[in-house]
């Protein structure tokens, strides 16, 4: 090998993942955001075991400010521990965020892939349906779904997912339209690959980078979305979530503004970190931006 490349200038072949990770690691803001995000997720998983106070229990006098009387974040209008609400609420907010994003990515990728792969009337029909969903104001539409069919967690997840897939569908479609004309796809087609194989084994893996970035942002939007719904009271009354804490305390901002500002800060930091990680992923996965 040294005969061909005596000075060892040809870099070793590396997997696309390690290459992307290398890029991502260089992005300080994204790395810090990733660390904070991991801490939040760990807190959501293990927090309720370490801090088992029931967020619905009235444990102390109402409106006890943060730090006083041994309650780190104070108590709300019913004397419930705000820290407990924050820790237990993290689970619901994050799980719904992830699940709703998964639903919308599943729908979006399927619609976009079919439209971009088959073109013709399939594309026309599917893109008209996508446009239809873009016309309905997302929050109102999911409020209607939750109001008509009940405010259970699966229904809320579905209601968020079913209204927010259109961006994913558009991105997937345009990637499929671009990639399906490339030579290696032609080659697989010529060597007898079935349509299903072409779509999911040949084109989809190459269309993934922008979809992954969008997926990260979707999780953030879904968390915001859930917060909005539960702020309005459209949530399962038996579980606590960040938005719901804000919604139930908002009449008392004059007495205890921290009951609203602190849970909002939790949502803000989580979504901010997700969006910074999304930016980092975008830089790492988008080959056009790579300087080499």
């Amino acid at each position: 090998m040294s005969l061909i490349d005596p000075e060892n200038t040809i870099p070793e072949a590396r997997s696309p993942f390690s290459e992307a990770w290398e890029m991502f690691r260089g992005n300080t803001a994204a790395m810090i955001a990733l660390v904070i995000l991991c801490l939040i997720v760990l807190g959501a998983i293990f927090g309720p075991y370490l801090y088992p106070t029931d967020p619905f229990d009235m444990v102390w006098a109402p409106f006890s400010p943060p730090g006083a009387d041994g309650f780190i974040l104070g108590t709300d209008y019913l004397g419930r521990d705000l820290l407990a609400a924050l820790i237990h609420g993290a689970r619901v907010s994050i799980i719904i965020g992830l699940a709703a994003a998964a639903v919308s990515i599943l729908i979006g990728v399927t619609v976009g892939a079919l439209a971009g792969f088959y073109k013709g009337w399939v594309e026309e029909l599917l893109m008209r349906i996508t446009e239809f969903f873009q016309v309905l104001p997302t929050l109102l539409f999911s409020m209607v779904i939750v109001a008509l069919f009940g405010a259970s967690l699966p229904m809320i997840t579905f209601a968020i997912g079913v209204v927010s897939w259109t961006a994913v569908a558009r991105i997937t479609r345009s990637e499929f339209l671009r990639i399906r004309e490339l030579e290696y796809v032609m080659a697989s087609r010529a060597s007898g690959a079935t349509n299903a194989k072409l779509m999911f084994r040949v084109i989809l893996p190459n269309a993934l980078p922008p979809i992954i970035v969008q997926a990260a942002l979707m999780v953030g939007s879904a968390i915001l979305f859930e917060a909005g719904l539960s702020f309005l009271g459209l949530t399962d009354p038996n579980v606590v979530s960040w938005g719901q804490v804000i919604g139930s305390n908002r009449q008392y901002i004059l007495d205890a503004s921290y009951t609203v500002t602190i849970p909002g800060l939790a949502i803000f930091i989580t979504v901010l970190c997700i969006s910074l990680v999304g930016d980092g992923l975008n830089d790492a996965l988008n080959p056009k931006l790579r300087s080499r």
Partner: peptide, 22 residues
């Protein structure tokens, strides 16, 4: 751009309410 994406709109509203109305 970062703040506008990440801050829940109802939270921003309540913060402004606390600051400029109360």
């Amino acid at each position: 751009a970062l703040f506008g994406y990440a801050a829940p709109v109802f939270w921003t509203g309540i913060l402004l309410l606390i600051a400029f109305s109360l």
